[in-house]
Amino acid sequence: MATKPDLASSQQPTGMTPIVKTVVRFAIGIIFMFGWYIIIYGHLTPGGGFAGGTILACGYVILTLAFGKELALRKMSDMAASIIDNTCALLFVTVAMIGFAFGAFFLNFPPHGTPFNLVSAGVIPLYNILIGLKVTSSLFAIFLALSIFGRFVSKLVDEAEEEE
């Protein structure tokens, strides 16, 4: 995932001040690592797909706010976000459908393994990862849409006022 933005080389100054950029450069790796930890250990410790996915979305939002939208769009474009969103939703239903082969919808069909291991609890970690990716991509996509289209609206309004 996105860890080390090479914004020092970018020519046009976008985003916030160098102080914010430096802090974000140090913090962003930790934020993504924490989000993935929350998702992957969701069946053993507090957390899960929803919380971890929102943390990852916050990481992308920080990138967008600090470095401007070009870098964030390079890391995850709006098209990629919607494709990940749809794919994860479909995979979620597909894994649930596979349960039909073993008896019932949403059946926890794989062997459960020993408790307190990372690979245990059957299908729950898989669901966690799918939901985490889905929440990440959809929340980031909506933030992108709102902020960029919002800017667009404000610029249009400014121009209309100038014309008047």
């Binding site: 929440v135 909506i142 709102l146 289209f149 609206v153 309004v157």
Partner: peptide, 27 residues
């Protein structure tokens, strides 16, 4: 409640989108 919180975020973002369209139309 875990699901309800995330649904609340989705609803809020949709309301914000509607607000932006209203602002674009009525200023």
């Amino acid at each position: 409640v875990l699901t309800s919180i995330v649904i609340g975020l989705g609803v809020l973002s949709m309301m914000t989108a509607i607000c932006l369209r209203l602002y674009e139309k009525y200023k």
